[in-house]
Design a protein around this nucleic acid. Structure first.
Lengths: 186, 186
DNA sequence: GACTAACTGGAATCGGATTTCCGATTCCGC
DNA sequence: GCGGAATCGGAAATCCGATTCCAGTTAGTC
């Protein structure tokens, strides 16, 4: 691949993320190309389809979320780990409409499976730990958790303050009686 | 207005609600006309624009939500009232993708203002009562509440069981220490 | 039962976004 | 520094759903 081509690919992806962050799902191709400083033809050579472009962004998003998860997992306390991750995600979503609107819609299919798998694995660790410590409402699976995060994004889009929304979600997720098992509280 | 025209208008609105309930925001005009048993021309005579059709649906939705609110307000306990209303809404949203996807998007402008006002008034009563009883997290305003309901809808769209999602939301909304004021608990 | 204003259906048009295409330009190995 | 394959840019084609238009039909009136 020629050097300028690679450079362009990166610029396009970066521009796409900016435009999607600002416009959400309504983002259009031509403005993305313009912001990247290339013609639409170039955009389409790199990403044959709008969906393909979105897929590429999703790969990046997933990788970043996986990184966030790793950070959160570094803290020993399982509940604090969840708190941190929810906060990080909420804040990221508050800044990026793409994350809120387009990420949840497209199936994980069209992405690099590794990033997707890594994310899933780490998330399930986060959840399992919390369950073992008895601090997470027992009915909450990784899927439930993800669904609620999508909901959090929608609430933010609807205008709710992200900190408040995150706090409410966390309170709802917490086990009603975190006493039973040998659980460290808070 | 001719009798058949009125009949058609009703059929169209009914069909539109069905199609939107099934397809969500992606619902198209032609299938709606087909389901109503009329041509698109007739559809457009009654609703000059897609937005106008959505506006008419929104008026109905709002009226129904206001009715739900009235029912909920009939119960004396402020927290039970909120519980009931959230449950009713979650269940309705689980059945109707339009309620989840298109209702939140369009501004309240293009509807019958009375229904909208009635809804708002009743909601603020629901919220105030709960605050007075000290059972609702104090930072939660009517707007916050609505935003979280939108989030609830998105979570349901994402595949979360509506009962579970509603339960989590309710737990999060509840005041952390419902002891302070002269509050009836539960 | 005949008249006509209103209403109907659906083919045609429109509009706006994505995607294709190709002459012009640019890198890079020699 | 040259040759030409790869890449570029953006005008034009395409797509697809919303909207318009009008010849034909009908409900309601006399």
């Amino acid at each position: 691949m020629r050097a300028d081509a690679r450079r362009n690919r990166e610029r396009i992806l970066k521009a796409a993320r900016q435009v999607f962050a600002e416009e959400g799902a309504a983002a259009q191709m031509e403005p993305i190309a313009r912001r990247a400083g290339v013609g639409v033809g170039t955009l389409y050579r790199n990403f044959p389809t709008r969906r393909a472009l979105i897929g590429a962004m999703r790969a990046e998003w997933t990788a970043e979320r996986a990184a966030n998860l790793e950070q959160a997992l570094a803290t020993a306390d399982p509940w604090v780990a969840i708190t941190e991750y929810v906060h990080r995600s909420a804040e990221a979503m508050s800044r990026d409409a793409g994350l809120r609107e387009v990420f949840p819609d497209l199936p994980a299919k069209e992405t690099t499976p590794e990033a997707e798998a890594e994310f899933r694995d780490r998330l399930s660790v986060l959840i399992r730990r919390a369950h073992d410590a008895g601090v997470l409402r027992p009915e909450v699976s990784a899927e439930t958790y993800n669904g609620m995060m999508v909901g959090l994004g929608a609430a933010i889009t609807a205008g709710t303050d992200w900190r408040l929304a995150a706090e409410i979600l966390l309170a709802g997720l917490r086990a009603t009686d975190p006493l039973s098992p040998a659980a460290r509280t808070r």
